[in-house]
C-alpha cells in the first residue's frame, strides 16, 4: 500500500487530493526527464575519476569522432521511434549506400568516376527506397518491423550484388582529403555528422512536419482527427530515415575508403538503446533531438571508457549490458496496468 497520502487524506477534499496527485506526478515526471542528464554527468565523472586520460583533448576529440556515425543514425531513429515504429532497414541501407558509393566514385574495380554526383545518386536512390518502405508499411498496413526487416534484407543482398562479392576499394582523392582533414583539430567527418544532426533537429523542432510526427506518435487517432495527413507523414519519415541511413553509409565509406555491405552491421541497435537511455520511448510520442544526443553521448562515453580501462571484449559486452539495463531502469516511464511487451 502507498501510505504517502494517508496523513493528508482527512484534511483534503477529493478534488484537492486529485490536484495533489497531479502535482506529484508532474514532479516525478520532471525528475525522470532530468535522469538522462544526470546519467551523463555521472558517466562523465566516473570516466574522469578512473581514467586520467578521459578528459584529455585527444580523447575528447576521439569521443566526438566515435559518436559521429551513431549520431547520423540517431536522426533516422529519432523520427521513426517518435512514431512508435522501428526501421530495421537502416543497416541494410547503410551497407548498400556505402557499397554503391564505392561503385560509382573513382575506384580500383571499374572505370566509374561520378564524383559528387555518385553520392547524390546514392542519396536519391536510398530516399526513394525509404519512401517505398513507408508506402508499403502504410498502404499495405504491414507492421513497420516486418516491412523494414524485409527491405533491409533486400538492400543487403543488392549491396553484395553491386560489388559482386569482392568489396570495392575507393581511390577517389577527395575521400582521402575528407577522411584525414581536420578543422581546429576536429575531423571533417565529425563536423559533417554534427551538421547533419543539427539539420535533423531543426526539421523535428521547427517544421509542421516535425509537429505532425510528435502528434501521430502520441495519439494517432487524435492526430488523424485534426486533419493531419498521417499516411504521407509516415512515408516522409521512412524516406528521411533511409536518407539519413544512406548518409551514414556514405560517411562510413569515406572513412574506410571501402564499399561493402557489412559496414552497416550492428550499427542500429546500439543507437536504439542510446535513444531509450536518453529518455525516448519505443512506443512513440516521447523523445526528440536532445534525448537522442544525450543518449548517444552517454553510450559513446561508456564504450570509450571501457576501452580505456582495457576491459576484455567479451567482458565488455557483459558490463555494457548490465549498465544499460540499470540506466534504462532509471530513465523510462512505466505504466501501471500493462507490462511492456
Amino acid at each position: 500500500m502507498n501510505n504517502k497520502w494517508e496523513a493528508s487524506m482527512e484534511t483534503l477534499s477529493v478534488g484537492e487530493q486529485f490536484a495533489e496527485k497531479v502535482k506529484d506526478n508532474a514532479k516525478k515526471d520532471r525528475i525522470r526527464r532530468m535522469m538522462p542528464i544526470i546519467l551523463l554527468v555521472v558517466m562523465t565523472a566516473i570516466g574522469a575519476i578512473t581514467q586520467k586520460n578521459f578528459f584529455s583533448a585527444r580523447n575528447l576529440v576521439n569521443i566526438l569522432y566515435q559518436m559521429s556515425i551513431p549520431l547520423v543514425i540517431s536522426v533516422s531513429l529519432m523520427f521513426v521511434l517518435l512514431l512508435g515504429s522501428i526501421d530495421l532497414s537502416i543497416e541494410g541501407v547503410m551497407g548498400f549506400a556505402g557499397s554503391f558509393t564505392a561503385f560509382l566514385v573513382q575506384n580500383r574495380t571499374n572505370s566509374n568516376n561520378f564524383g559528387i554526383f555518385g553520392i547524390l545518386i546514392v542519396l536519391v536512390i536510398c530516399t526513394c527506397v525509404g519512401a517505398l518502405t513507408g508506402f508499403i508499411h502504410t498502404k499495405g498496413r504491414i507492421a513497420s518491423f516486418i516491412t523494414t526487416y524485409a527491405v533491409g534484407q533486400v538492400m543487403t543482398g543488392v549491396a553484395v550484388l553491386v560489388y559482386n562479392s569482392t568489396p570495392i576499394a575507393v581511390t577517389e582523392p577527395a575521400f582521402v582529403t575528407i577522411s584525414q582533414g581536420r578543422l581546429f583539430g576536429i575531423p571533417y567527418l565529425t563536423l559533417m555528422s554534427f551538421a547533419i544532426f543539427a539539420i535533423g533537429a531543426i526539421i523535428l523542432n521547427f517544421t509542421a512536419f516535425g509537429r505532425a510526427v510528435y502528434a501521430i506518435g502520441d495519439n494517432e487517432t487524435a492526430a488523424a482527427s485534426t486533419g493531419i495527413n498521417v499516411t504521407l507523414t509516415k512515408i516522409k519519415v521512412f524516406a528521411l530515415s533511409a536518407l539519413m541511413a544512406s548518409a551514414a553509409g556514405i560517411l562510413m565509406c569515406i572513412r574506410l575508403k571501402l564499399g561493402q555491405s557489412s559496414i552497416g552491421l550492428n550499427q542500429m541497435f546500439p543507437v536504439v538503446t542510446a535513444i531509450v537511455l536518453g529518455g525516448g520511448s519505443l512506443y512513440g510520442g516521447k523523445g526528440g533531438a536532445l534525448s537522442a544526443f544525450v543518449g548517444v553521448l552517454v553510450y559513446t562515453e561508456l564504450t570509450n571508457w571501457l576501452t580505456l580501462m582495457g576491459v576484455d571484449t567479451y567482458l565488455r559486452g557483459v558490463i555494457q549490458g548490465v549498465i544499460i539495463i540499470v540506466a534504462v531502469t532509471l530513465t523510462i516511464e512505466r505504466t501501471r496496468k500493462t507490462i511492456s511487451k
Binding site: 509542421a208 505532425a212 510528435y214 502528434a215 493531419i228 510520442g285
Partner: peptide
C-alpha cells in the same frame, strides 16, 4: 482524451495543428 487531444503537445500546438500549412 483518445481522439481529440494530443497530450504531449502544448496548448499552442494543439490549437494550430489543423492549420499549420498556412503558418510556415
Amino acid at each position: 482524451r483518445d481522439e481529440g487531444m494530443i497530450g504531449i503537445l502544448s496548448i499552442e500546438n494543439n490549437i494550430v495543428i489543423s492549420h499549420m500549412e498556412a503558418l510556415q
